[in-house]
């Protein structure tokens, strides 16, 4: 498979996953009760009493996870092939989309108020508050003080179902249109047929995951049987792994600096960006995997 075909396949898959996550999300919204007290019961009712509710929940879950995995693969592929230098604005928009995706993922974890999600959200918010200036922003946007209040929950819900979607839409269209403008090689008809092919394939894969595999780790909090260990979702584990090596404030700052460095990569002179970037990327990936493994340990 040629690189451009792979990219096209990946882009269309991500768009269909995003579309599918939105569709299932809208369906789930019909049954969700966005208050801290009632959300767990609504979640349980959705999974046990609503026709195809469990499958819908599982498909939403898997589409979000697959989307995150593909976005990371896309980032690695872009860096590996040094494509960021030729499309600097695309690179920045890509970063913004990745950031939105992480935030959407994070806020989505809180909504059912299950054990792992609640823990992940709370710990992430605490870590984010370590970054200078973020504390007041979180307080202002989410009403976050010392924990998840009803106000924080409702605002998190609003961000997850509305604000992020509104931001996603124009950015995805811009990202896709720009790519089509630069790399367009197919007729619209052929593209539409390929698009349809990938969308139906993605739907089939998601439906299979939704019907066959359960929503992993979604257990409601049981105060009488607390878990021996709770780990964050896989995508956030490297950050938690890092926070075990160093103080949380330092980890948060390092994370912020890596983020800024990554965003500014195409704008740095070739020498400053490093010559053997592929070796650097391999080292970074290994470090991330080790940190992720550490972050998941008890």
């Amino acid at each position: 498979m040629k690189a451009e075909t792979f990219r096209r396949w990946m882009g269309i898959s991500m768009i269909s996953l995003l579309g599918f996550a939105t569709f299932t999300g809208v369906m789930l919204q019909a049954y969700h009760v966005p208050t801290l007290e009632k959300a767990p019961h609504a979640y349980l009712m959705l999974r046990t009493r609503v026709f195809l509710g469990d499958a819908m929940m599982a498909m939403h879950f898997w589409s979000a996870h697959l989307l995150m995995a593909l976005a990371m693969l896309h980032l690695v592929e872009t860096v590996w092939n040094r494509r960021f230098r030729a499309a600097r604005v695309q690179w920045l928009v890509g970063w913004a989309l990745l950031g939105l995706l992480v935030l959407a993922d994070l806020t989505g974890h809180l909504l059912p108020v299950h054990r792992e999600g609640y823990w992940t959200y709370t710990r992430s918010m605490e870590a984010l508050r370590m970054i200078p200036g973020v504390r007041s922003v979180l307080g202002l946007l989410l009403g976050w003080q010392e924990g998840v209040s009803n106000l924080t929950y409702v605002r998190t819900y609003a961000f997850h179902v509305t604000v992020f979607l509104l931001l996603f839409g124009p950015l995805v269209v811009w990202h896709g249109m720009r790519w089509m403008k630069e790399r367009w090689t197919l007729s619209y008809r052929r593209f539409a047929l390929r698009f349809l092919e990938i969308v139906v394939g993605t739907v089939a894969i998601l439906a299979t995951l939704g019907f066959v595999l359960p929503v992993v780790s979604h257990r409601l909090e049981d105060p009488l049987h607390p878990p021996a260990h709770t780990a964050a979702v896989w995508a956030l584990r490297p950050v938690y792994g890092l926070s075990r090596w160093m103080p949380e404030g330092v980890a948060a700052l390092l994370f912020l600096l890596t983020l800024v460095y990554g965003m500014l990569l195409p704008f740095l002179p070739e020498r400053a960006a490093g010559r053997s970037r592929r070796t650097m990327l391999l080292i970074l990936l290994t470090l991330l995997l080790v940190s992720a493994w550490l972050g998941g340990q008890g």
Binding site: L196, E197, V200, V203, A207, F211, V212
Partner: peptide, 16 residues
């Protein structure tokens, strides 16, 4: 649900 899934796969493969 799994029966529905089989039907879905049939149509998906047919479409592709």
């Amino acid at each position: 649900g799994r029966v529905l899934l089989l039907v879905l796969w049939f149509y998906v493969l047919l479409t592709i």
